[in-house]
Design a protein around this nucleic acid. Structure first.
Lengths: 322, 322
DNA sequence: CAATGTTGGTAAACCGCTTTAGTGAACCGC
DNA sequence: GCGGTTCACTAAAGCGGTTTACCAACATTG
């Protein structure tokens, strides 16, 4: 028994004859170590947990796909937890995974934290934050370079000639949002005094929020000529709202979305967007777990995908809607 | 110890005073049963496995989301396995989950089987097939009503006046594909002898395949005036291919897609589609596991979502592309 | 040839829970 | 006041691995 166990776990080298004898017996008996027993004995599960807001969302779905693949490549199982973006569920899952003895945890959230999340996350060894920060947590953190993304978007809009920029943002207080906003501000600032952010909204990253923002935009006295929409879902909503009001994109208003996961190239117009390296982020997160890197922030590069939703602003004497 | 265990597992009723004493101690010590030990002792894991081709695909993502939510509601964990549609990985995962002692398994595949999958699945107690059949397997099976979907699509196209119908299908030999095809055939048959399927292709459910099919369609001597595309991915590809060739949908050719998960309403034109009750299917699958229903096929209803990609056929004297 | 050092293999402890068996005390009726 | 229950609890036996401690056999060495 001991010998076999040691052989199986590679902690001993045996003469070929013995090895063959063992292997034959294993084959003959169709023996497979009972994983429950193994886990109990070893005290680890060779499993990591992935908690995210919602799998049905294509962004998180792709993240999950990348994480799953990377985990599998490392021989790790993946237990999936969807929190529906509710803090109660996040805490429940955290507690569960904590005592479940997962070997690692990848946590991605989508809303501001009041501090209880941060506390809870830290009770779990091997936790990694992905995509969005939970301020106050000491852990490895893998985000995309939100600031650079906002800057890129701002630059593109400014380069097309826009000077009154609007920003349809996420929930205030979220790190990703702050970064994108800061980046946009930096681009505007660098452009000079005639450029300004003249319109902004805040709300969840959702289609409904995009529609709401579109209504606000339509009601604005001095609407901006270009919109940086900080999430793809919201961009879809904005597009709907604009289309319903017969506002042409990019004829009447230009638009850049953050994220590029849906079939944005098939929309009318094809949407210019900031793309994050989703798969690379997922892979890096499991790598962070298996190599047990220390706390710290790692920023992944974003890129601007140019399509057809940004154009020069309509000439000054051709105001929006007559 | 015994008393506590029995209390925790509800196999005994204790006087209130004792209960309080136990609960206090549990709280005071922050005691949580070690799940590894529990699982070893109990022989079950309170976990189910979900194996599907790819999470990044929005259809499977939504399926996974529904399954996760339902599983959680039942107090079951979910281990996620993405097979990338490769049989080798499917078999590996099946073997792993089998000896991992999951309490149930939801299996969704996306390609024809040569028989080895069927054998492997049957070794796992509590396996349920979802979305796509693996012929020869004795297990509960939850599919959407593919035949009805094909029929609905056919009817809609026929009702718009089309008589030469094309079908851009999935891989031959897949149960879902067979059903959709049969349904389309039935609708055409019922319409009378002047209606016919004059064009058809087979290939995986993918965007690339859609583009390939579009090229075939463009090269056809007598192209049909309407297309039933058996997957949403392929429909996206077809749309791209058609757009590149300046073919107008639905002016030159009408189009109905099977599945309705992406932002189909935002495309140009908004795509008419057959929608399956994805969430209900996912929920039903975990229900099938917890209630241990017997083998058998269960068909979930589909519906036609009318948008703007089907119109009457172009008049006879206005042939495609001059 | 006895002492020492490998080497393949056996026995037993342990991981932390569930569960069966067993024990002492309180409570019952007679 | 004593046998028979009920009740709360303790003791111990798994579950099926891993790991430490220990042995026997054989090769090496002084």
């Amino acid at each position: 028994m001991t010998t076999i166990s040691r052989h199986l776990n590679g902690s001993i080298v045996l003469p070929q004859e013995t090895v063959k004898r063992i292997d034959d017996a294993i084959l003959a008996l169709d023996y497979h170590p009972n994983p429950h027993a193994r886990r109990l004995s070893l005290g680890r599960s060779e499993t990591i947990g992935l908690v995210l807001p919602e799998i049905a969302n294509p962004f998180f779905a792709r993240l999950a796909g990348a994480v799953e693949e990377a985990a599998d490549a490392e021989g790790l199982g993946l237990v999936l937890c969807a929190t529906l973006n509710r803090q109660g569920r996040e805490l429940d899952y955290l507690a569960r995974l904590g005592r479940d003895g997962v070997d690692g945890l990848i946590f991605v959230t989508n809303h501001p934290d009041d501090g209880s999340l941060a506390r809870s996350i830290e009770t779990i060894p091997g936790a990694v934050l992905l995509d969005e920060d939970v301020p106050g947590t000491v852990a490895p953190k893998i985000f995309c370079d939100n600031e650079a993304g906002g800057y890129l978007a701002g630059q593109a809009l400014l380069a097309a000639g826009h000077r009154r920029i609007g920003c349809i943002g996420g929930l205030a207080g979220m790190t990703s949002m702050d970064g994108r906003w800061q980046g946009l501000c930096r681009a505007v600032r660098e452009c000079g005094p005639e450029a300004a952010i003249t319109f902004s909204t805040n709300g969840p990253y959702s289609v409904a929020e995009g529609r709401r923002a579109a209504r606000l935009f339509l009601a604005a006295a001095e609407p901006p000529s270009a919109l940086f929409v900080c999430s793809e879902e919201a961009a879809l909503g904005v597009l709907e709202g604009l289309r319903d009001a017969d506002i042409d994109v990019p004829g009447d208003v230009s638009l850049i979305a953050f994220d590029d996961v849906g079939p944005l190239h098939l929309l009318t117009p094809p949407l210019t967007a900031i793309r994050q390296p989703i798969e690379a982020m997922g892979r890096r997160a499991v790598e962070a777990i298996v190599t047990k890197i220390g706390p710290g922030i790692e920023l992944m590069p974003v890129e601007l995908i140019v399509r057809q939703s940004v154009a020069p602003p309509p000439s000054a004497n051709r105001k929006l809607k007559g």
